[in-house]
Amino acid sequence: MNIFRFFGDISHLASIFILIHKIHTSRSCRGISFKTQVLYVAVFVTRYLDLLYSWVSLYNFVMKVFFIASSCYILYLMKVRFRPTNDPSIDTFRVEYLVGPCAVLALIFNYGYAVTEVLWSFSIFLESVAILPQLFMLQRTGEAETITTHYLAALGAYRTLYIPNWIYRYFSEGYVDPIAVTAGLVQTGLYLDFFYVYFTKVLQGQKFELPA
């Protein structure tokens, strides 16, 4: 554990709390892509199967359980509790274009041909692109509630902080995880456009609006 990874994880936690807070206070999941949230459940469940057979630390265990539980809770909020506020007609990204290639990549690039290892790889690849339906939705509507942009910023900060973590681990432990690093760089790259608008507009007190 190092400071970058720790704050990355905290940022990830924060993003989930911000999202749940947004849904509860506005009593609406408007502007949130259900597809992205489903992909996150798939990511956490396929990655954290090792909960069943390997122990890393209490920290690791609690975080994994929290990520699985909170992502399922968000699906419940969107599909049951605040269902009328969820508008599938603007959530039109084709997720099969993400899941299919990630499954193929996982079969090619993994750390061992065990079901759990392939699923772990799959979850890493899928996480890197899981935000795309959400960003696509944002692109389509051209604007977002400020709180939604804070959610996205915290989520983007999480993987961004993992990059200095990997650099740190390379020098301090000689540890390199090429699959996580490659996917992590892609994932962070997807946020660059968003970050640009977030820093130049939202943090200057303006509304998140994309140029027409």
Partner: peptide, 10 residues
């Protein structure tokens, strides 16, 4: 190799 010690990152 990362998998030998398990995947310790979240």
């Amino acid at each position: 190799r990362p998998s030998e010690s398990g995947h310790d990152e979240l």
